[in-house]
Design a protein around this nucleic acid. Structure first.
Length: 508
DNA sequence: CTGGGGATGGGGCCC
DNA sequence: GGGGCCCCATCCCCA
């Protein structure tokens, strides 16, 4: 018995020794790895800093050369344009880091039956972000602020920089106060929940020799926590620049706003409540095929999404963005494209088709002019800036829906600024199209969000509009209230009767 | 050519 | 009178 005890004691002591040895070894390994890891991190940071410095130098040098070229052009332009170009040039210099991200238009969402649409017919509780265009009290910059799109290379971040520079470097603005001086914020906002997606588009006008800027604020619900880099939100959230025309305000939704400071260290340091932002959202609500890519090869999208956020400043106050009278005019030699592969679009989704149609139409009609009275960045052209693709053919314009189905001509014909019709002050935050009242915008924005609050009680079909549901339900009821006076044909839709009657008339 | 659906503008009603 | 809301007409696209 005693031997047994001694034996057990010895075993225990041996086990203890072995365990200690094992722990010591593990600790040593961990320490070693940790040291190596730290060393690698340190080296990587050093490399990053070096590269960043080099990039800065290159940019500055390039801007210097470019500015020299521009000055020659500016000699024939209004002074306000000169200022803007100066802004631009300066802006480029200190923008060396981009958040490569790619955000598909929400319109690419594909509707799914299992999509958690919780709004039933008639509830109409969908909330959308709305941009309101307000009549401008002044014609501040007017058409004088236009930028030439012939510029060789445009900085994707320019739009942001244009504003940030205005704020950071007021001495520049003083060169031409009437143009650059910050206007009293004429914006009020309403950014409301759109099934987890928030999206804002601010687009500036271009003229025949100007360039177009689309500012877009996207919030996608592809993930629980939207990564600011993925979403290209890296730079939003800055305080409104003095020259900022647009302000995007979020509603007091329980959305978390993070920020990244607008510095080269943003990548390293993570969140900083000074500049960009991202939001938290419910991915389940808005899973509709939204994707975000970090592929930097998608230059335009990256630029696009990035430039957007320079513009927007979220403010948890209003829910509607009010903008001055707006006109969108896109002319140019280079085709305007979405620069997105068709394969990236939601297959079969009408909105995706719209985007593509638009792109194709622009490509085939490079000189197409999109002039909607809805979109005019008329003053405070510090907003107006270049999308700045390095490739002139890659001008990205996101006036998709407005133009995709020939609505362009309509919009022109029924200009809101004609004075007779209601002023279309309410802008779609996705495509910047204007509407006469917020309800219209809300309905329209369902095009982008995929929201379909109206469900048929007899089938799975859902609709964005009550009227279309009503029309659809005739399919079930068999009701065909529209009968041809010249034959026995009956139709469920008035338009079909009208179209049918052309057959009798021999019209085509 | 028809059927079905998407999208938008206009008008009426109510507050 | 103006804005919000709702309904309807209309046009368009696609299968």
């Amino acid at each position: 018995m005693a031997d047994c005890l001694v034996f057990h004691t010895q075993i225990a002591s041996i086990m203890e020794v072995l365990a200690n040895a094992a722990v010591a070894e593990i600790c040593k390994l961990v320490d070693d790895d940790y040291a190596v890891f730290r060393l690698e991190i340190t080296q990587s940071r050093k490399e990053n800093r070096t590269l960043r410095r080099k990039l800065l130098e290159l940019k500055v040098a390039r801007e210097r050369a470019e500015r020299t070229t521009q000055e020659r052009v500016l000699a024939s332009r209004p002074s306000s344009v000169k200022i803007l170009d100066q802004y631009r040039g300066m802006a480029r210099g200190h923008l060396t880091e981009g958040h490569g991200s790619f955000v598909k238009p929400a319109g690419h969402n594909t509707y799914r039956d299992d999509q958690p649409i919780t709004v039933d017919e008639g509830s109409g509780t969908s909330t959308q972000q709305v941009i309101i265009i307000e009549s401008a009290e002044t014609e501040a910059a007017g058409s004088g602020v236009k930028l030439e799109r012939s510029e060789r290379e445009e900085d994707p971040w320019h739009s942001r920089d244009t504003q940030t520079r205005a704020a950071v470097e007021p001495h520049v603005a003083t060169k031409d106060p009437p143009t650059i001086a910050p206007a009293p914020p004429r914006t009020r906002h309403r950014i409301t929940e759109v099934s987890g997606t928030q999206n804002a588009v601010l687009k500036s006008e271009t003229d025949t020799d100007t360039l177009t800027v689309t500012h877009r604020l996207l919030r996608t619900g592809s993930d629980h926590r939207s990564d600011p880099e993925r979403l290209g939100l890296g730079r939003l959230g800055c305080p409104p620049a003095s020259g900022s025309e647009y302000l995007l305000h979020s509603n007091p939704s329980p959305r978390t706003v993070h920020s990244l400071r607008d510095s080269g260290d943003a990548f390293e340091t993570g969140n900083d409540l000074s500049c960009s932002y991202t939001t938290e959202m419910d991915p389940g609500i808005m899973p509709l095929g939204l994707e975000t890519l970090t592929d930097l090869s998608r230059g335009d999208w990256n630029r696009y999404s990035s430039s957007v956020y320079s513009e927007g400043c979220l403010d948890k106050k209003g829910e509607v963005v009010v903008v001055d009278e707006v006109t969108v005019k896109v002319e140019g030699d280079a085709p305007l494209t979405w620069n997105v592969d068709k394969t990236d679009l939601g297959e079969g989704h009408s909105q995706g088709r719209d985007f593509l149609n638009y792109r194709e139409s622009l490509e085939t009609n490079p000189n197409v002019t999109t002039q909607s009275p809805l979109h005019t960045v008329r003053d405070r052209e510090s907003v107006s800036t270049s999308m700045g693709p390095s490739n002139s053919q890659d001008h990205v314009l996101f006036d998709q829906v407005l133009n995709s189905k020939g609505q362009k001509a309509k919009a022109q014909g029924r200009g809101a600024t004609s004075g007779k019709s209601k002023e279309k002050r309410f802008l779609c935050i996705f495509c910047n199209k204007g509407f006469s009242c917020p309800q219209k915008v809300e309905i329209h924005q369902r095009v982008h969000t995929g929201e379909k609050p109206f469900g048929c009680t007899q089938c799975h079909m859902r609709f964005a509009e009550a009227g279309n549901l009503k029309k659809h339900q005739r399919v079930h009821t068999g009701e065909k209230p529209f009968s041809c006076t010249q034959c026995h044909m009956r139709f469920a839709q008035a338009g079909h009767l009208k179209r049918h009657q052309r057959v009798h008339k021999g019209e085509k």
